[in-house]
Design a protein around this nucleic acid. Structure first.
Length: 353
DNA sequence: GAGGCGTGGGG
DNA sequence: TCCCCAAGCCT
């Protein structure tokens, strides 16, 4: 193509120099020259799985206050970990977090292993997180390929094959970029670049340290990369939750099954979630026979794989009412500190109105 | 390996 | 309003 400027190679040094000037200040990040704490790096990486830095930050700070090190976390009951995690989503992460802390105590005497292979054997740590901890906590040469990497590399090399099929190719290309020096900073630099410059929509190419190396920019197709397969529409489900109240104000709560959706979390007693049911059928699922009154309005909530519409029924029960198996009466003041997922916080809010 | 698994914010 | 998205893992 005569007249077109030849592309530079994407040099790690150029990105690291940009990082040294523009690194984001994040609560889990060590200061320049400071040694990283593997516990904090691991904790942050678990929280950041499919989660924005803005959402994770307050949870990270609360966890660090309550569980300053891996021994404190391992020694706590899992229920307390779930309470602190409530609202952050993907609750298997919290269960695995606790299991991982115990494994580090039992198998590694409380010291996080540094190799990707050993990290991979721990609960909740997959290929991405193993590489991230190895790189960021131990400055080992590893390539934690997340959504940021995929986007940056897809654009840098103008990979037009859609995700997820292009993943192996993106991985190969990523590996060629990682330098021997400062691999931890480099990994964080790519993430910062993806979060602030090479964004999903309208990337700020004029500010990008790799702009002159970017094949997608040269072709003018950066906005359309990486390509992704279209997602199917979310199915709709319906259900009802029950707000049973005693004269002393206590509310009936229940523990969900230990695995699956919202596994191990606290809930208001609820029907199963599926096709819409008529009122009589719904009330056969109530925890007690009672004078159930439907609340005005509904709770709507979107999960990862379906959308839920929840009705709320309320009834006053006698002080002598015995909580069914797996349920208990909770003092009103204790409800806000329960391990209630967001969908049930919405239901509580509706019931209290 | 395809699907289950949350949530809140932004365009 | 709707759709997309965010530092994935497990089965």
């Amino acid at each position: 193509m005569p007249g077109a400027a030849p592309l530079n190679r994407p040099e790690a040094g150029a990105l690291l120099a940009w990082y040294d000037r523009h690194r984001r200040r994040l609560p889990w990040r060590a200061l320049p020259g400071e040694k990283a704490d593997p516990y904090r790096v691991w904790l942050s990486e678990i929280m950041l799985q499919q989660t924005t830095t803005v959402a994770a930050a307050p949870y990270f700070l609360r966890f660090l206050t309550r569980f300053p090190d891996v021994a404190a976390l391992a020694g706590a009951p899992v229920e307390e970990v779930l309470k602190l995690w409530a609202g952050l989503g993907y609750y298997a992460r919290a269960r695995n977090l606790h299991a991982c802390a115990k494994a580090v105590m039992d198998r590694h005497h409380g010291i996080f292993p540094s190799s990707e292979a050993e990290l991979l054997t721990l609960p909740g740590i997959g290929p991405y997180t193993a590489a991230a901890v190895a790189a960021i906590a131990f400055d080992l040469k590893a390539t934690p390929m997340d959504g940021n990497w995929e986007r940056v590399v897809a654009r840098l090399f103008a990979v037009e094959e859609p995700l997820p099929g292009s993943k192996p190719r993106l991985r190969t290309l990523s590996g060629t970029l990682t330098p021997d020096e400062r691999p931890g900073d480099f990994a964080q630099a790519v993430m910062d670049l993806g979060a602030t410059i090479c964004t999903p929509k309208r990337p700020a190419c004029v500010l990008c340290p790799w702009a002159t190396a970017c094949e997608a920019r040269a072709k003018g197709i950066q906005d359309s990369l990486p390509r992704k397969a279209a997602k199917p529409a979310k199915p709709e489900r319906f259900g009802a939750a029950f707000w049973a109240r005693r004269p002393d104000g206590a509310i009936l709560l229940r523990r969900r099954p230990p695995k699956g959706l919202l596994g191990g979390m606290t809930e208001l007693p609820t029907t199963p979630w599926g096709p819409r049911l008529d009122r009589d059928t719904v009330l056969t699922q109530a925890p007690f026979p009672a004078d159930w009154r439907i609340r005005t309005g509904v709770v709507t909530h979107v999960f990862s794989h379906f959308a839920l519409t929840l009705e709320v029924f309320a009834a006053d029960l006698p002080q002598t009412a015995v909580a069914p198996e797996g349920a208990w009466w909770a003092a009103p003041a204790s409800i806000d500190s329960e391990a209630l997922p967001s969908v049930f916080r919405k239901a509580v809010e509706l019931a209290r109105r």
